[in-house]
């Protein structure tokens, strides 16, 4: 199986830390990620909000390059990119739709395009819990994690095929294998407000606020995420959410790959931990104390 990596634009901007930690964890697990040469934006929410053929064309360009590069599977860390790539593949099964998409491309897309999956699913497919457990050097013992997938990873179910659309469990499986204590978090696939933070702040502030409030009330030390947009809404916009909820939050929001990386004894600077907006110092202190104190 040959995998091609679609980093997604956020990996070069707001989610540098997600990219870094994904790379470090995959390398440690023996998974080689090679970028799709000259990859370009999938169009994100705006493209499909405006027109699904445009969205599919922006995705098809990347899928086509991956196909010509011999890839069987495109892997991306970002649920929003994944959702667009998979929606494009799904809709392009229809000949008329495919033709309309091809009209927008420099040349028609290859007949057979590679399937698309998430980094999380790839890790889960290649390494079961036992296998991940074996690679844990410093378990996340005593760290209470609220797993938060966001709404795109598992929905729409017919396109995403990510297990139960309201109650996926892959992230829990992976983080439990790293020794963490997992909170049964009811809001794990409820939307954080997505990309509407810029044009309509109340949508992100209130929805993210509810997630932060429940995680706090349930005693979480940290929220684990897989989506750059969720991360930004919960972390960078945490003060806006606090204002909407009329309370204070001090809730670190880390990528699941950063948490995995810590457990696998990858140095924090290779996981982009210093890039988080809300400091995870309490998590790191607990982590250090439970692994022989100090650093």
């Amino acid at each position: 199986m040959k995998y091609s990596y679609f980093p997604g634009c956020s990996q070069e901007g707001s989610a540098l830390d997600y990219g870094k930690s994904t790379g470090a964890v995959c390398a440690a697990l023996g998974i080689t990620l090679r970028d799709i040469p000259t990859w370009s934006c999938c169009g994100s929410t705006p493209a499909h909000a405006v027109d699904e053929e445009l969205s599919a064309a922006l995705c098809a360009r990347n899928l086509d390059i991956a196909a010509k590069d011999g890839a069987d599977m495109v892997v991306t860390p970002c649920p929003s990119c994944l959702s667009n790539l998979r929606a494009a593949l799904y809709r392009m099964r229809d000949d008329h739709f495919r033709e309309r998409v091809n009209e927008l491309l420099d040349e028609p897309a290859s007949e057979k395009l590679p399937d698309a999956t998430s980094v999380m699913q790839l890790i889960g497919r290649l390494h079961d819990a036992e296998d991940i457990g074996k690679r844990v050097v410093k378990p996340l013992k005593g760290i209470k994690i609220a797993p938060y997938y966001g709404c795109l990873m598992s929905r729409p179910a017919k396109i995403m095929e990510f297990g139960d659309p309201e109650n996926p469990v892959l992230m829990e499986t992976i983080l439990a294998a790293c020794g963490a204590e997992i909170i049964d978090f009811p809001l794990k696939t409820v939307c954080c407000g997505a990309a509407s933070g810029i044009p309509e702040r109340s949508l992100t502030a209130l929805n993210s606020g509810r997630i932060l409030a429940l995680a706090t009330d349930m005693g979480a030390d940290v929220i684990a995420v897989a989506c750059p947009l969720c991360q930004m809404n919960l972390d960078l916009r945490q003060k806006q959410a606090a204002k909407a909820m009329n309370r204070l939050f001090d809730m670190p929001v880390m990528y699941f790959t950063q948490l995995m990386g810590l457990a696998m004894n990858i140095a924090p600077e290779n996981l982009g931990i210093e890039q988080l907006c809300v400091s995870p110092r309490a998590v790191l202190a607990k982590f250090a104390a439970n692994n022989g104190g100090g650093k």
Binding site: C9, L16, S40, L54, L58, L236
Partner: peptide, 29 residues
């Protein structure tokens, strides 16, 4: 958000082929 965001961000390097091809897709659209 700017001060917090800028602290963490830098502008990406983008290959020309990516720019040109997406520009053409959007123009055709």
């Amino acid at each position: 958000l700017a001060p917090a965001a800028l602290k963490l961000r830098k502008l990406p390097f983008i290959p020309h082929a990516a720019t040109a091809a997406t520009g053409r897709i959007i123009e055709r659209y």
